[in-house]
Design a protein around this nucleic acid. Structure first.
Lengths: 324, 324
DNA sequence: TTGAAAGCGATACCAG
DNA sequence: CTGGTATCGCTTTCAA
């Protein structure tokens, strides 16, 4: 690999000068500049990013920590983050934490040791302290770590209210809820939204709510249980699309027709929701945009650019399809 | 951030000594070692990976270049690669090439500049020359770049033969094929497998094959076209699951019942295939294992360990579900 | 068994 | 406008 020294020697100048033309910084005479550029071309020289990083204490890399890239929500998010990062000159290191506290901390440590410029993270367990100790810009996505930290979330409660009302307007008399994991902020918010709409209904009882743990398999079981306990249920709001799909599968197995006998609505708007038969009605989040926004925000933070806003609550939208 | 110098100063030794205990290399007296370890603990010192990388010309990072992480096949692959890489002490930089030659080359360049230890890539356009010029270990996955290069693929042709025969055994009299993109090796191989089984059939004509471009939307259209041209078709082999799902959707829209009137079989075994209703019969590839194997192989290559084999053809398996 | 010092490949300050 | 050089943080001879 040719280094800056080689280029300098070939061009007959000092490394300082080569560095100047490389970074287009400081004065360089017209024809020395040309000599250098010629030498660069000839050797097809590419600066060593690691050496640069060592000096700059930045590696033009950002870390992305998600629970599991296999979750379609995070897949799309990752794609958006990577697209935007590349566009702005950064690479992204992918980290799957499985929501595990220790793994998260381990990733945080090595990312820091690698001089990443910033980190995008989706975590329930991370504390504000942990993040501040890092001394690296962090933006939290999908889940808030602390009010003070840069965060991008969506209108979870509002979306849940929309979903539940929608079911009512469609004529559902008894609406059940498959909730997400306990302790996960967005699961709680969606739960609250549902509750707000139905809590004053005379029929309502806590047993209309079951935990699906944001997992399809769990949701199938939870739905089966829910439906056997309350056969009168004619509408289900699931806290995410995966669970909604699970609910539809359970209904299918029990011989309950969707949407004729049972309406199902989800939350997220993952691609999968359009692929199902029947296609899933859902509260769609602007997932790709979440990723883009978090990345541009992170990069502004990293580059110390003036920043308008560090807490975004993105709007959600109800998309009606065939399952309701 | 505390550096090796700080640790040395606190422990009252030289940086060389600290380095020795850090890497457990060379002689270190028992009690100096203890002093150093104490200092490390106290300061919770973590070596700077970038400085290390500069010296070693390796960054403990591997690059993963895939066309698009949103394709479920690559999502699962990425997860496997990241899992195994982490287990062995490496991070992974994620790159989405969209199958674009220039993007691929750009990623290759910056990965090299970042001193990645190795690269896993899935590409149709990359040439053996490009890879050799890199001077970085590369393993090609899902698609062969050249016979000489480390590669992991699956039994595409055999799988296609299995799928087509299976349809015949299920009683299908006219079998159509939704093929993958032209010029993509695995699409061609699957096409050949199909052809091998049906080419001597009296009814067979080239028009029983349409191009779905490995895309769901394309497949929907292609299937509709195929079915209107040859309404007698009672079985479809799609070159991947996404397209098989597209075919089922098209059938659904045309009012053709799957599997009663039309049997559909896919290829890949993505998670999605189990989620569909009806669940998709498919040729499953050991996707996760592909990722694991490619990673361990790459790392063996990187670490110059003796390596048994550099060209794997993994077995596929027919999993019968409800769509046939 | 330990330390001094020469890199690794770039950047940026300070002279000239 | 250009060059010399210290520096980033770590590893590895080479001597002592």
């Amino acid at each position: 690999m040719t280094s800056i020294k080689d280029v300098a020697r070939i061009a007959g100048v000092s490394v300082a000068t080569v560095s100047r033309v490389l970074n287009d910084k400081g004065y360089v005479g017209q024809n020395t500049r040309e000599k250098v550029e010629k030498a660069i071309k000839e050797t097809s020289y590419k600066p060593n990013e690691v050496a640069r990083s060592l000096f700059k204490k930045q590696s033009n890399t950002i870390g992305l920590i998600v629970p599991d890239i296999m979750n379609p929500f995070f897949t799309e998010l990752a794609r958006a983050v990577e697209d935007m990062a590349t566009k702005l000159g950064y690479n992204v290191i992918l980290c799957n934490s499985d929501g595990d506290k220790d793994k998260e901390q381990a990733y945080l440590d090595v990312l820091k040791q690698k001089y990443v410029n910033g980190i995008i993270v989706s975590s329930n367990t991370l504390t504000a302290l942990q993040v501040e100790e890092l001394n690296v810009p962090v933006v939290s996505i999908d889940r808030e770590i602390s009010k003070g930290l840069p965060t991008i979330v969506v209108e979870n409660k509002k979306g849940a209210v929309m979903a539940t009302r929608f079911l009512q307007n469609k004529g559902c008399r008894r609406i059940g809820h498959i909730r997400g994991s306990y302790g996960v902020a967005n699961a709680e918010e969606r739960y609250e939204g549902y509750k707000e709409v139905v809590s004053k209904e005379p029929w309502f009882r806590e047993s209309f709510i079951v935990n699906g743990d944001f997992d399809m398999q769990f949701s199938i079981e939870a739905t089966a249980e829910l439906l056997s306990l309350h056969p009168e249920i004619d509408g289900i709001f699931a806290a995410n699309d995966i669970m909604a799909i699970g609910a539809m599968k359970a209904a299918y197995r029990l011989g309950r027709k969707v949407p004729e006998e049972l309406a199902v609505i989800g939350f997220d708007g993952i691609k999968l929701s359009e692929v199902m038969t029947p296609e899933l009605t859902t509260i769609v989040q602007p997932i790709y945009q979440l990723g883009e926004t978090s990345t541009t925000m992170l990069i502004s933070l990293m580059e110390q650019q003036p920043i308008e806003q560090t807490y975004y609550t993105m709007a959600v939208e109800l998309v009606e399809r065939k399952s309701t």
